[in-house]
Design a protein around this nucleic acid. Structure first.
Lengths: 199, 199
DNA sequence: CCCTGAATAGGCGATTTGCCTATGGCGTGG
DNA sequence: CCACGCCATAGGCAAATCGCCTATTCAGGG
């Protein structure tokens, strides 16, 4: 298995990170089935992963395989420097294809995911600036966002701010457009989470 | 223990069910490492699982391995007839031990989980007001609640559960009525928080 | 000055909600 | 063994809301 010279392809060293040991086993088995892939470390947490990776310093390629099928996560992962984002419910051959794509210097996104993420990028970002989604909201939009995060309905928010529900609706639309939410449900969920994290 | 045959190495046939193919691969590899374990089928969904199992009729032992660290799920699973409930973040040897325990006719619960479940049973109903509102939801209602908490729309939930949006709406109404939410926005906020606190 | 972006809101068709009713399945207690 | 209740399913229908468009006003910046 370890014959780097006889095999034309360079040995690829892989560090796996997942909080479920059995999932780590699954990926280890899957990736080890490729002769030139070597899983050299696994980790169950971020600190562990950092410790494992600190000695594997060179230009590290990161492929995120997540159970979350939301554009937000993919965007966050890519902005944080990941080279790929895919769903856990894809088959084994897709995983290997994605690893190869990332190794080749590319970016991997599932077809449906890439459509959504690229759409969001095309309509929003001046690249290079790691903009916190909430920083691009106006004060009023932010206020509305926060109130949605407190579980208010659009009508209640309108009453509280003494404006028309229609105006709240426009703010809602702008928030969705600016941050890249497809549905209002997604936006509200993130608003609730945002309120949660600084309550 | 329905194998009176003195051969303690009797072949054990196993059907795996998980919605993540790679996870299935992981468990297949793990369990196949035991000589007398044979993974005879895998399934990605409940209907598939039922189809696969219908031909494996005899007294079926069910071991649930879940990502949810919640006593509630363990109770529901056991009440529904499962013989064991464990977390995904346990190591491989624990999985094999659990399978053996269930095969031997026992019930498997992780130490922390069993403490919590048994505790819940023991302190059955001293203080009535401290009842988690979620305990009074039916399984289906609970599922819908959880999905709202993940930021899905009613329509998306209907699609995912393969039921009519009208049915989701009825579940939503019942959740609101049972727990006492006045608006859907309130209910959704609590659902998001609930999902947040035990992700 | 003009142009952009923010805040406000009306219009309107499409969708969703809220509330009713209804049916079939399944368990429990008379 | 049957009645009753709970559950999951879903249709009907009016009212509310959403999604998308346009429009007005106003404050800053080039």
């Amino acid at each position: 298995m370890n014959s780097p010279d006889s095999n034309r392809q360079a040995l690829v060293r892989i560090v796996l990170v997942d909080d479920h040991p059995v999932v780590l086993d699954g990926y280890r088995t899957l990736l080890s089935s490729q002769a030139h892939f070597q899983v050299c470390a696994t980790a169950c947490s971020a600190p562990e992963a950092v410790a494992a990776v600190e000695r594997e310093h060179p230009a590290l390629k990161i492929l995120v395989i997540s159970m979350h099928d939301e554009t937000l996560w993919a965007e966050r992962a890519l902005k944080a420097g990941a080279k790929g984002y895919m769903m856990k419910d894809c088959d084994s051959s897709t995983v290997i294809a994605a690893v190869r794509a990332v190794l080749a210097g590319g970016i991997y996104l599932s077809p449906s995911m890439s459509a959504r993420v690229l759409g969001a990028f095309a309509s929003a970002r001046p690249r290079g600036s790691s903009v916190s989604p909430l920083e691009i909201l106006s004060d009023r939009e932010f206020e509305v966002f926060r109130l949605f995060g407190e579980g208010r309905t659009a009508k209640e928010i309108a009453a509280q701010l003494s404006i028309s529900p229609k105006t709240v609706a426009v703010h809602r639309d702008h928030i969705k457009e600016k941050i890249g939410f497809v549905t209002s449900a997604e936006m509200i969920r993130e608003a609730v989470r945002w309120v949660e994290t600084r309550a």
